[in-house]
Write a protein that binds this DNA or RNA. Structure first.
Lengths: 340, 340
DNA sequence: TTGAAAGCGCTACCAC
DNA sequence: GTGGTAGCGCTTTCAA
């Protein structure tokens, strides 16, 4: 942002016309002499003029920038969501500013504050696993800054949300396991303060109930993070007096770790124990055995979140916060047995 | 960016002091009465004041924002680089604005222009595979906007760069293949206008030469994209009168596709044909067979690029553009035979 | 159709 | 230690 950049004032000086006229010409206003306009445009090109969005933003009180906060960019699911958001919003002239919370509540708050300070026109966020209270987001709502939650949402906030039907996805997965003959189905989940964890667990429970299979407490284990704890959790399940015949994991990273433990213990998958994941990360297709998983439409989720934001900005009066639920798809691969 | 946000003027009015004093107090200037300062800070908290970075940026001619352009966020390698950049720059008070070129030259130009319009303090970019000329970046250099290239760089630009030692990585990979007994080693590469393609091919050629293995034109195939062409390329190699006994792929996505074709044709890996990739994407570890590949320190590359940018901003006079080369590591897995 | 001028929110200079 | 004020680059009335 050096002074080597031409301004409309520079153009005006060169052309011997007023700043206002240059401004109008540049923005293609109707009431400007075609010739003047042409001259301005030519001079702009010649001088390598680039409008200063910072000044523009200050003046019009709109930055055409949206803030995104995700737990981690390098998780494929979130990267895809971001792609979807960007695809949709860039068509509407928005740039995006991205932050990662790295699952930390404090970092998330700092991210949000920074984005507010940068006066983003809206905030699209998937909360950190640590986040239990939402004042930092409520403040934005009070300030009338559009907030859209995706994937990991907070029930208490009255803002637009887009989620996947986690309950249904989990239900379908567990129901399928049962249809393949599994009876002692374990569940490895995440912290229940996380909406998705909660929903997936409920889907698991309801599928058992629907099939008249009793719920066994000892078959349910929960993890606060997905790097080390899932390994402990799997071992715990394998050390039970009676082994499970399937393990439903709340996401693919967990399923991969589970598979590793199973391999170490020389337990055959899916013959002895079936494994199901969630998310359909690219790895799950390539790993051996490939993982049966619940596919989430990540890119579409990004587009949906972006659409909700744009709707809100363009029709601030008529807009009503709503929750959009995207459907999942059970992808059957080789970590589960076949039906019949 | 609604008028619901408090400004320093609001604070000044409430406190019955001047705007200048509020500004100074907020920024912890030295010459301000501790009590006044305290009062200002309290009022700021009370009124939920957030400094307007847009106004600040306009005034000080610095946005504390850096622009990043990558081919695709959802490619794990780039996501990791971005993480590295963000980790480093956020410590220095910078926010990041991210764009994807999706390998399109036109999109890349538009991205750069948008970032310039947003007056980013610097631009960190890995160019699109389509990009053959660099005027859009040269313009930035002329305007004294710091540009740092990473991974996919352009020799012609005199700006700081950070790359991986692609030549050495490829050399090590091919040399290893030879040591495991391979003699007819094929290469599937990318467009040679891409620096990394070029370097990796040279590494391949030099490893052959160093081991007195003749170069065979028919064993080298090139792709412009990495979704469909690698499949055709692999088939082409397999249709040769004499089969290769190894295929060195310029990156892991290509290696995965190659593996698929090999599987379809029921060719045993590594017994009949060995396969090596490049990048060490997470998938390469999990796929069956797991892929021998050349690991690139993505996160460190991001940090290095960020460091170069910060150096340049903080010591504009003494800074000299240089190229930093990071070392690769050959990760030996099951898609290649063992030595001896 | 064009120009003058105010002002977006902030910093920094200069006076007091 | 504090206040007045100019001005960053732009948009947008209002007059001419």
């Amino acid at each position: 942002m050096k002074n080597t950049q031409a301004t409309i004032r520079d153009l005006a000086l060169k052309l011997n016309i007023s700043i206002s006229t240059v401004s109008r010409a540049l923005r293609g206003a109707q009431d400007v002499n075609p010739e003047t306009k042409k001259a301005v445009l030519e001079m702009a090109a010649l001088m390598n003029y680039e409008p200063n969005k910072v000044a523009q933003s200050l003046r019009i009180k709109k930055t055409n920038t949206i803030g995104i906060v995700v737990p981690e960019i390098a998780i494929h699911f979130f990267a895809s969501v971001i792609s979807g958001i960007q695809h949709y919003t860039s068509k509407h002239g928005y740039s995006i500013m991205i932050c990662q919370s790295l699952e930390s509540f404090e970092t998330e708050k700092a991210n949000v504050q920074m984005l507010v300070s940068n006066r983003v026109d809206g905030l699209l966020i998937s909360v950190a696993s640590e986040t239990r209270e939402y004042q930092h987001l409520e403040k934005l709502v009070e300030k009338k800054i559009p907030v859209v939650l995706f994937d990991r949402v907070a029930d208490s906030l009255d803002v637009p949300k887009v989620v996947v039907d986690d309950h249904d996805g989990a239900f379908k997965a567990v129901d399928y396991l049962i249809k393949t003959g599994c009876k002692r189905i374990a569940y490895i989940g995440g912290s229940l303060t996380l909406s998705i964890s909660n929903q997936r667990m409920k889907g698991y429970l309801d599928a058992l109930k629907a099939n008249n299979i009793p719920v066994r407490e000892e078959l349910m284990v929960f993890c606060n993070e997905f790097h080390d704890e899932p390994i402990v959790a799997t071992r715990q399940l394998l050390d039970l007096p009676e082994l499970p015949d399937a393990i439903f994991c709340m996401n693919d990273p967990v399923a991969i770790l589970t598979l590793q433990v199973l391999k170490q213990r020389k337990i055959a998958v899916p013959d002895e124990i079936s494994v199901v994941g969630f998310t359909n990360e690219p790895v799950s297709r390539y790993i051996e055995p490939s993982i049966t998983t619940v596919a989430q439409p990540a890119y579409q989720m990004g587009e949906a979140a972006a659409r909700m934001f744009i709707d809100q900005v363009e029709n601030p009066s008529s807009f009503k916060p709503r929750m959009e639920t995207l459907q999942t798809e059970l992808i059957i691969r080789n970590s589960t047995r076949r039906i019949g």
